[in-house]
Write a protein that binds this DNA or RNA. Sequence first.
DNA 1: ATTGGCTCTGAATAGGTGTTCACTTCTTCT
DNA 2: AGAAGAAGTGAACACCTATTCAGAGCCAAT
Lengths: 227, 227
Amino acid sequence: MVYRRTQQVVKRLAARRSAILVAARDAAIEGGMSAVQIAPVAARANVAAGTVYRYFPSKAELISELIVDVSRDELAAIRRAADAAPGPSSALAAAVTTIAVHIVSHRKLAWGILAEPVDVDVSESRLACRRDIAGEIELRIAAAVRAGHLPAQDTALAATALLGALHESLVGPLAPANLDDPIKLRDAVQTTTLLALRAVGVMDARARGLVVQSVLPALPAKMAIGA
Amino acid sequence: MVYRRTQQVVKRLAARRSAILVAARDAAIEGGMSAVQIAPVAARANVAAGTVYRYFPSKAELISELIVDVSRDELAAIRRAADAAPGPSSALAAAVTTIAVHIVSHRKLAWGILAEPVDVDVSESRLACRRDIAGEIELRIAAAVRAGHLPAQDTALAATALLGALHESLVGPLAPANLDDPIKLRDAVQTTTLLALRAVGVMDARARGLVVQSVLPALPAKMAIGA
DNA sequence: ATTGGCTCTGAATAGGTGTTCACTTCTTCT
DNA sequence: AGAAGAAGTGAACACCTATTCAGAGCCAAT
C-alpha cells in the first residue's frame, strides 16, 4: 500500500461530509424535506451528485442523519431551558416555550422533520426523534404532577397532544399568517403555550404567569422588542 | 347530431364517476393518500386508467373532490352532534368527541386528508376543508366563551391547536398502540377530549363530566361495550 | 517523476407514476 | 342494418429523481 490518508485529507473529508449535511439542512429550512434532493444538495455543497454517495449510502441515510442532528440540538435546548427553571411547573413552561420558539424559527424545517412525508423511509429516525422530545416533555409533566401542581393523568398522551397542538397552531396550514411580524409571533407563542399548559391542567391564572415568565427570556432579542 | 345521452347512460356515467371516487376513498382508507394512484384506483373501480381521465381532468382534481366529500360528511356529523347538546360547553365537548371518534375510525384516511403530503397540489381544497372544521370548533368555543363558561381567548388559534392535539395523539406516529382494542380506544378518546377541553379553559372537574357525557353516546356500539 | 490507489465527476441508467392518444367498443338515431 | 359519435381501453410516453459507474483527477510514497 503506497497511499495513506494524511491528516489534511482526513480533515477535508470530514469537512465535505459536514458541508453536505449543512447543505441538506439549509435546503430543508428553505423548502422543506421535498427540497432535499440529491442533485440540489450536491450543488449547494459544491460537489457532484455522485460524491454524496461516497459519504452517505443513500438519501434515506442522509435525511436520517439530518433529522438526528436537528433533533439532538432541539432536545439539548429544551433540557437547558427546563433545567434552568426554578420549579417543575416553570420547567414545563420553559420546555414548551422553547419548542414553540424553535418551531416558529424554522417552520419549514420543523414541518419537514416532524410530519412532511418523504419518499424514502426515514420513519425510524423520525420516530425516535419525536419520541425523545415527547419523552422529555412527559418527564416534565410527570414532575409537575408529582409536585402536586397538576392533576394525575396519562403523561405520555398528554405530551403527545401537547406537541401536536404546538405544531398545528404554529406551523400547520391554519397557523396564523404574518408570523414574520415579531409582535404577532410573540403573541402566537404565548397563546399557544398558555393553551398547552392549560391542557395538562395548569390553572388559568397560574398558567398566564408562567407563560410571561418563560416566553420573554426564550425569544431572540429582535422578537422580544415588542414587549 | 344523431346521438343523445339517454337516461340510462346518464345514470351509468354517474355511477361510474361515483365508483371511481369510492375506489379512491377506499384506497385512502387502506393505505393513505400515497395509495391513491391512478392505476390501482382504476383497477378497483373496474375501469381502465384512461377512463379515470374521462371523469376527472387530473389526479389532483380527483383527490380534491375526495377531500371535499369526506370533509363535508365530517362537518355534518360534527354539527349534528353539537346541535343536539343541551348547552354551549356540552356542544363543544360533543363536537370534539365526534372528531376524535371519526379520526380513530379511519386513521389512515384522516392522516391522508389532514396532513399527509401528496405529490399533487391539493393544498387549496385541503386547506378549505381544514378551515371549515376548525371554523366550526371555533364557533363552539366562542359560544362557550360568550356563555361565560370559558375565559376570553383567541378562538381561532385555540381551535387550531385543539385539532392538532387530537390528530397528533390519535393518529400521529406517537399515538398509543393497540387502538384496535375498544377499551383502550375509548380511553384514548376520553383522555384526549379531556385534554382538549382543559386546553381551552374548561375546569378539570367540569371537563371530566362533559367528557363522560359526550363520549359514550358518540362511540359506535362495539366500542362502548367496555363501559 | 512515476506508480498505485483513492476520490470525484456527471452523464447514463433505472424505476415509478401521471397522462396521452390511436384504436376498439358501445350507444343512439335514421 | 348502417352511420355517426360518444365512451372505454391500455400500451406508450413523459417526467422526475435516486442511484450507478467508467473514466478523470488527485494524493502519497518511492
